[in-house]
Nucleic acid binder design. Structure first.
Lengths: 192, 192
DNA sequence: GTAGCTACGTGATGTATATCACATTCGTAC
DNA sequence: GTACGAATGTGATATACATCACGTAGCTAC
């Protein structure tokens, strides 16, 4: 399925649009391709766009003290990603986003999102719903962080996204779980 | 300032509304008063409303294994709170919300929110913005959880909300930070 | 092929924190 | 006032995890 159709199904599942409305809206999305390792957003730079993932896998991460990396999100197909703090408040990026694999995305500027939201009530509805979904996921992850130990969080992650196990290096999974790569290694070799 | 005026300023800061529009919107908000300790939402029950805090302080929390409590949010004046997962998906509550102090709130049903969002584009805009704000706060807290140690998170919390120190018992602050009350006690008595 | 780099495993050790236990202070009901 | 429960402080011990150190396997460039 091509990018346009993927986005159309994704949006109209939540907010019904006529074909004309969607075609108009789609004119603001720019298709882009990236190679494994390419950087979309880097800390300290200006952030103007958000990205809808068509294929591949991205990671949004934070680097602490130039040493430790924490992964905020693995962005898989039909996920949205950006530094939303920087994007909405027009400040410099505090996180980084790059490609774990080759990836295709649709790129939407902050300005254009606000434009279509104000022009099309249904678009505003869609983005409200999408943000709500992100909020719930974030709350759920926070609770999991407080409530579960590392092993439980590891199993939770892999049961939600089994494809991650073979797609991303283990030290990135550790960075998502917030533990050292050594601890993660010991964890899943323990119950061998 | 009375409740209606507080809500009006809160909303129109983000989404300009005429007086008529706001008066109409406000008819869906029901003022309610609660005493310290009263319960607004409890795990396993149906959730139909969200709450806008006018005065006092509420807590949204999760109980694990009938033993450990984790606080997701202290809801202060001009904050919104509910079990949004249950509210949006029409499922049973998985968290609890009760009053740390006497409190006044404005109560809005899920049905009425969706109604005014579909009737008034500006209302939809407001709720998109509000949810976005919650999402960013949640992400920030998650990052803080991974990145900072307990002492840093304690100081971060108190610098953001200095009034909490005298308002809420220390074991609730511990439950927000995700540490035992003993550890928290030792932390702020250490640097005396 | 070799060199070099990245991912990954694993042992030894240190540390932050949970947990258990008990004491003390404070507020509230009566 | 007294009694009782909730909140808090603090010591002793256990444990999960970080960190450091080192080794190995696999991939890429040349």
């Amino acid at each position: 399925m091509e990018a346009k159709e993927i986005l159309k199904q994704h949006i109209t599942k939540t907010a019904p649009l006529t074909d004309e409305q969607f075609d108009y809206l789609f004119t603001y999305f720019k298709p882009q391709s990236f190679k494994k390792g390419q950087v979309l957003i880097s800390e300290g730079e200006k952030v103007d766009h958000e990205y809808f993932v068509i294929s591949g896998c991205l990671k949004a991460f934070f680097i602490n003290d130039e040493i430790k990396m924490y992964i905020l999100q693995f962005a898989m197909p039909t996920w949205w990603t950006s530094d939303y703090g920087a994007l909405y408040n027009q400040t410099k990026a505090t996180i980084n986003i790059d490609c774990i694999t080759d990836a295709e995305v649709l790129c939407l500027s902050n300005h254009d999102r606000e434009k279509i939201c104000s022009e099309l009530h249904q678009a505003e509805h869609f983005f409200r719903w999408r943000t709500n979904r992100g909020y719930l996921a974030s709350q759920k992850r926070l609770l999991s962080f407080m409530n579960n130990d590392t092993k439980a969080r590891y199993e939770e992650l892999l049961s939600l996204y089994p494809q991650l196990y073979n797609l991303v290096p283990k030290h990135l999974i550790a960075a998502y779980l917030g533990v050292s790569r050594e601890t993660l290694s010991r964890l899943y070799n323990a119950h061998k």
